[in-house]
Amino acid sequence: MNGDLVDRGSWSIEVILTALAYKWLYPNRMFINRGNHETKEMNRTYGFEGEAKHKHGEQTYKLFAHLFTVMPLATLISATKPPVDSSNAILSPEGKKRFFVVHGGLFSKDGVTLDDIRKIERIGRQPGQEGLMCELLWTDPQEMPGRGPSKRGVGIAFGPDVTRRWCQANGVSGVIRSHEVRQDGYAIEHDGLCTTVFSAPNYVDQAGNRGAFIRIDAAGTQTYTQFDAKPHPPMKPMAYASGGMASLLS
């Protein structure tokens, strides 16, 4: 699960507790990345802090706030078999596909390695406004080559050439990220090296998008499953947000 489990609606507590229950039940099969909304500042603005305190009290929110800092910033998924067709694929040193799964995206500078990411001290820390942790949770792909300013005011936008260089340098077959609505639930970008997947259908009851998830088989082949929104009880999205804020910022 690739971040932003909370703040996406008015049942964030139920969503995150269900995910944690699966993590407890299947600790070696369930993995939950941190998103830019698993942070104190965003929870205060978009509603999770208010929801957690309303439903279960302040101490429960404090426990969640610490839990979010323990979540991984990214996950590396490695195929167990060589690909059927590797003619155009970037492969790991073992000759297999592997995918870098992260909520936001890549970096404001070249040369960042997987080891650099592993060494980030995350526990008990917030991402701030700059640096590797911030960029992992906040950046977005752009169509133009190179790097550009972020439409969000935090992080940067990175082009297809940036993605290719980073994947080649790290032996990564593709980046799988979330963080942005896609009308079909997913979009394959940057010449196939960057895939955005967004699993909240009809985001905040307004966007009209489908949701999707990705399945990766043993050879590293990706398939996509789309789904539509279902009716829910009459509670508006982000009902616990400060000032009643309901933004499409993801």
Rank of each mutant, 00 (worst) to 15 (best):
G146L: 06
F99V: 09
S78A: 14
R165M: 07
S150Y: 11
G95M: 11
I77C: 11
A79I: 10
L132A: 13
G131T: 10
R125Y: 04
K81W: 01
I156S: 00
P160A: 11
P160Y: 06
H103G: 07
I123D: 13
K151G: 15
F107Q: 02
G95Y: 03
S150E: 13
Q126F: 03
F100H: 08
S108I: 03
R122T: 14
G105R: 01
L132M: 09
S87N: 11
A169D: 15
A79Y: 09
C167N: 10
D116F: 10
S78Y: 02
G146P: 10
G124Q: 09
A89W: 02
V154K: 01
C167S: 13
A157K: 09
A89V: 12
V154C: 08
T139K: 00
V162T: 12
V154G: 05
G111D: 10
G171F: 04
K96D: 06
R122V: 13
M133H: 01
G171A: 09
S108Q: 01
G131F: 13
R165D: 13
S173C: 08
E135W: 07
T113L: 06
E94Y: 00
H103M: 08
E130Y: 04
F158S: 03
E94A: 15
G128A: 10
G148H: 06
W166D: 03
E143G: 13
G128Q: 11
S108E: 05
E121G: 09
D115Q: 15
N170P: 01
S108D: 10
R122K: 15
E143D: 15
E143C: 01
S150A: 08
D115K: 15
E135M: 07
W166I: 04
K109D: 02
R152L: 08
H103F: 05
V112Q: 05
R122D: 09
S78T: 14
G104L: 08
V154L: 12
L106P: 01
R165T: 14
R147E: 01
V154Y: 02
S86T: 05
P93Q: 03
P145D: 06
I77F: 13
A89K: 13
R122C: 13
T163F: 07
D115I: 05
D116H: 14
P82C: 07
R118Y: 00
I120N: 04
K119H: 12
L132K: 05
I123K: 15
R164C: 06
V101E: 01
V101R: 00
I120E: 06
L132R: 08
I123A: 13
R98V: 06
L91Q: 08
V101I: 14
S173F: 02
M144Q: 14
F158K: 00
Q129C: 06
K97P: 05
I156E: 00
D110W: 01
K96W: 01
M144D: 10
D110R: 07
L91M: 13
G128T: 11
G174C: 14
D161H: 03
K151D: 11
M133V: 13
S86W: 04
K81M: 14
T80F: 06
P93K: 09
G104W: 03
L91E: 11
